[in-house]
Design a protein around this nucleic acid. Structure first.
Lengths: 270, 270
DNA sequence: GCTTGACCCTCACGTTGCGTGAGGCTGGAG
DNA sequence: CTCCAGCCTCACGCAACGTGAGGGTCAAGC
């Protein structure tokens, strides 16, 4: 502000003065000059841009239309009379803006679902959960699972899928799990032995059903089998179907893994 | 779709197959490969990309997060566990989206005002117009003006300014116009002669006051003076202030123009 | 065995509206 | 005469691909 040469009494303002006066950056003025949208009528001998009062008029109009979101091309059309229908252009712009708002609203809704899924694990009311997962279900389980596993990749994958699942989809998952549980119990009753084709088919079926939560490698499945046996909660669930089912399940998983070249005793999550 | 080699039984899908399967373009897959976001695990001898089941998992997660508007960098963070706080990232994104929605809403409101200004010419109710412009005002005038001049640059400039004017601003304009009208009448009464400094000052003042509608060159002012005299409506207004004022005004404008090197008889709008 | 046509590859520029230096004049003040 | 703010012209960068250009690959049909 020191060397302000009071150039206003001269016949033009420099870029810096225009910038301060209109609230646009110097670079923007350069840009508009480059693309021919608003070039200064004058230059000093040294090449400084000088904007006259008429140039300022044009610049001001540009600023006005830029503020309502028009693209520079459209602004050029409006200023140069090449598109006579200004209200039409504005209306088209408004339509576009409305569409973008709609799109953003959908994004926002999707984000809400996704956040909810990551934090709660399940986008269902307690009543819906009870109706779908049956009387044994404990609504605190998702929260506990999140506290235990919330920072694993698998929880994230689970949450991503959960975000796009409604009651019907969860019902299908619950049905598939229940069917599998029954099939496991029946097979153990029928004396199916670990390593038999029948047992291996059930192990594969478990992998597929479980994949509705997150992708499960065979190694991970081995770890899961051991956890089912060791964890009191899981063991209670399986032994509640048939006494000894948790252990039997661990054994058929181990056998299947061995058949696929995996040593169940050194298998690792991942 | 003919040469579909059923490559699914092989251990990978080509870009086209993945594209069809996930609903993303081939170019996007190339791009994600380029930036290292999702590279295929395999290539054929000929260099064809082959995406395995594991690659598809990753691609699917990318698609999910892309759909809710995350940038590729953020997606990379989420997938690679480098930013553990996924819900935090999602919430930040939601905040951003909300801000963009707000901004777009403001744009939309601005567009509405601007459209209205272009089409009606005046963003005031009939009551407000009556209160500001007095009993002589006819609310049909803006519409008539638009029909006459709606496709001129000047109407557009007028509309742009009108869009940002509320009742107070219009009141100031109306006051300035009324003051000027009074001053013109008084000057004619006082015997001010065309070409005198007093008259020229009034002409300049008229240019300045009129500039609240749109920028007015001296040439345009000459045309305006002739129209005030010739048009029955305008003439009635000025002659209603003082008999003969319309003609006297035309004469002081002509004299002022001549003093500025303009021949009033050949002056042209623009 | 050769052609055909769908599919694949790798550059590499274009998009929107400037931001952000790099490197170098200009011009008023001390 | 020097200093420093302010001006100039390149020229790259950005976000996420779109869109050819120019040229291999592969299964099928003649």
């Amino acid at each position: 502000m020191r060397g302000m040469p009071d150039a206003i009494d001269a016949d033009g303002l420099t870029v810096g003065q225009v910038s301060a006066c209109l609230g646009v950056t110097v670079r923007a003025l350069h840009h508009w000059d480059e693309i021919g949208l608003a070039r200064p009528s004058l230059r000093t001998a040294a090449g400084y841009r000088l904007y006259t009062a008429g140039d300022l008029e044009r610049l001001h109009r540009i600023v006005v239309y830029r503020e309502i979101g028009l693209g520079l091309d459209r602004i050029r059309d409006v200023l140069d009379d090449s598109a006579a229908d200004v209200p039409g252009a504005l209306r088209a712009q408004r339509t576009q803006v409305a569409e973008r708002i709609d799109r953003l609203r959908q994004l926002s809704a999707g984000l809400d679902r996704m956040i909810d899924a990551h934090e709660r694990g399940l986008l269902l009311t307690v009543e819906q959960q009870a109706a779908i997962f049956g009387p044994q279900w404990n609504p605190d389980w998702p929260t506990e699972a999140r506290q235990r596993y919330g920072d694993t990749t698998q929880w994230r994958q689970y949450a991503e899928r959960s975000a796009s699942r409604g009651p019907e989809e969860w019902q299908a998952v619950a049905d598939a799990v229940a069917d599998l549980d029954r099939a496991l119990g029946d097979a153990m009753d029928a004396g199916v032995t670990p390593g038999s084709p029948e047992a291996n088919r059930l192990v594969e079926r478990h992998r597929e059903v479980f994949a509705s939560y997150f992708p499960l490698t065979r190694q991970m499945q081995v770890c899961l089998g051991r956890m089912y046996e060791a964890d009191p909660g899981f063991a209670a669930h399986y032994d509640g179907i048939r006494a000894g089912l948790a252990t039997w399940f661990r054994r058929i998983v181990d056998a299947s893994a061995r058949a696929h070249g995996i040593d169940p005793d050194t298998a690792t999550w991942q």
